[in-house]
Design a protein around this nucleic acid. Structure first.
Length: 492
RNA sequence: GCCAAGGUGGCAGAGUUCGGCCUAACGCAGCGGCCUGCAGAGCCGCCCAUCGCCGGUUCAAAUCCGGCCCUUGGCUCCA
């Protein structure tokens, strides 16, 4: 049973075979000009699930994810805050933000997060190679890729060159041989119109001039598409195994990357192209420019990492996913079900009633079936929703087993716990049984104290008083549940 | 206009690659029961789907073929 992935280039599901000892994974990261939102985090989460699954299947993963820190949107925000004197300040702020939020989401670290600003020499080299090989031409201090020289242009997105509308700003039209040609190197600093368009704040000073670097064509800066080619080649070589990104990048970004890279090296740029579908907010795409987004920071604070990760694992990476109160609520309920079942399994496995020779064959069969199906779901183009369903099947199996009479099947409970740890934690990045020290312990002691008092009230038949205590704990975020063995509680 | 991905129950979302295990998964919401002082969690059961429309192939189609309608996205910065 091997992994198959849907490759955008061929449009088909194909058996995955890495080109060498390691899997070379490049994820098209983002421009650090704003707080990341749930749509960006969806790509991160899906890339993380892929990374973790490859790890699980025994591959060595070399994961590189770029940070675009040169862009008009960044320039547009210079001066927005007192401490933002330059693009470097703005980009630095949002780079920190992005990396912090990635950490919040419990993502596997990439091998490197290359910045455009530190790869200008490699970019210039690549552009020079393209000019030398006749695939690019200089015009008025800028350099453009000559699409007519690359007959395969359009193979990723199935675009016909003639159908491609004008790219870039109108002033470029004069400099280009064909409307479909795209900039590899832009003369001078920023495009003033673009900066103006992206400015969100009042300003009276002159527009910043933008960042520029020396090049054989004079002062200038890299075009957008060429960065990814140069950075992926620098860190992972000419041919990637997997190139992953948002669906909106198929054209023109990834199409252009293929053209540049393959024209320069004569090698295939990536063997598998994976595109993650959009996060839908209502009926439209969640996007910074539409303003209909929920930031990752807010979401982590409001729902927590585990709910978010359950949410992302509840839809396939290629399809669109709806973000609504209801879908988040569903994810919250799913996560709680998993977490409770995990705790139930741990508690029962570590009880006097869990015996080595007890055997619940139905429970064991359910576990074996879940394992097989989880594996095949993930191998089948990373079908996370199906795989998640198997995790929930194990939760049901645990609950059913425990619902029955003691003794409990120790070996099966242990197997169930390992299932959660291997697949839930290992593959989906969920965090079961998180324990915190210090203050959390005091909080637990305090809750237990209140519960003792409440038990006294209950024994005395003062249910009104007992319910009031439970409500007040609930208001503090402590959920109390009564059972035969006395009250239990959990922090929300 | 061109290109791409989709249209499955109240919601969400698998299944379409390789037609039969689909009398359509998992879950949320709703209903009933067990448990329970109450509630919650859990368990058991139930409700809701002629799988966008029309036609075709086949012993058999959500799955294959043809046509049509609709939605979202890309073609401008975009994960």
């Amino acid at each position: 049973m091997t992994l198959s992935l849907t490759d955008t280039l061929s449009g088909e599901r194909e058996a995955f075979e890495p080109s060498g000892d390691s899997v070379l994974l490049y994820v098209c990261g983002l421009t650090v000009s704003d707080d990341p939102h749930l749509g960006h985090a969806r790509l991160w989460a899906q890339a993380d699930i892929l990374h973790r699954w490859l790890d699980h299947e025994g591959y060595d993963v070399r994961h590189v994810e770029n940070v675009t820190d040169v862009n008009e949107k960044i320039t547009a925000r210079v001066g927005e805050r007192e401490e933002w004197d330059s693009e470097t300040d703005v980009a630095g702020h949002y780079t920190n933000e992005v990396l912090s939020r990635m950490r919040d989401l419990n993502l596997k670290r990439a091998e490197v997060y290359p910045r455009v600003s530190e790869h200008v020499p490699e970019i210039v080299d690549l552009v020079e190679t393209l000019v030398e090989r006749g695939y690019a031409y200089e015009s008025n201090g800028s350099v453009y890729f000559d699409v007519a020289e690359f007959p395969e242009y359009g193979k990723l997105s199935n675009q016909e060159i003639e159908e491609v509308e004008e790219q870039g700003d109108p002033e470029e039209r004069e400099e280009k041989r064909s409307p479909a040609d795209f900039a590899l190197w832009k003369a001078d600093g920023v495009d003033a119109d673009a900066v103006e368009e992206h400015r969100k704040h009042e300003h009276d000073g002159p527009l910043p001039e933008g960042q520029t670097w020396e090049s054989p064509w004079g002062e200038g800066r890299p075009g957008w598409h060429v960065e990814c080619s140069a950075m992926s080649m620098t860190h992972l070589g000419d041919t990637l195994d997997i190139h992953m990104g948002g669906q909106d990048l198929v054209f023109p970004h990834h199409e252009n990357e293929i053209a540049q890279s393959e024209a320069a090296t004569g090698q295939a740029f990536a063997n598998y192209w994976l595109h993650v579908g959009f996060m839908q907010a209502g009926s439209e795409k969640m996007s910074s420019s539409l303003g209909n987004y929920f930031t990752v920071g807010d979401a982590v604070r409001e729902f927590g990492v585990n709910v978010l990760r359950t949410f992302y694992a509840s839809a396939e990476y290629r399809s669109q996913q709806a973000y609504t109160e209801e879908t988040i609520e569903e994810a919250r309920r799913r996560w709680e079900r998993l977490e409770r079942a995990y705790e139930t399994a741990v508690e029962h496995a570590d009880s006097a009633d869990a015996l080595a020779k007890a055997e619940d064959s139905e429970f064991r069969d359910a576990l074996a079936a879940a394992r097989t199906q989880f594996q095949s779901a993930m191998n089948d183009d990373l079908n996370a929703r199906e795989a998640m369903a198997e995790l929930l099947e194990v939760a049901s199996a645990i609950n059913r087993h425990v619902e029955g009479e003691a003794p409990y099947d120790y070996r099966a409970l242990r197997e169930a716990i390992e299932f959660f740890e291997e697949y839930g934690a290992g593959v989906f990045g969920l965090q079961f049984g998180e324990t915190t020290e210090g203050e959390a312990e005091i909080a637990e002691d305090l809750v237990e104290l209140v519960l003792d008092l409440r038990e006294g009230e209950r024994e005395a038949g003062n249910y009104e008083r007992a319910d009031e205590l439970r409500d007040r704990l609930a208001a503090l975020g402590v959920e109390v549940e009564d059972s035969e063995d006395g009250p239990t509680y959990r922090f929300e």
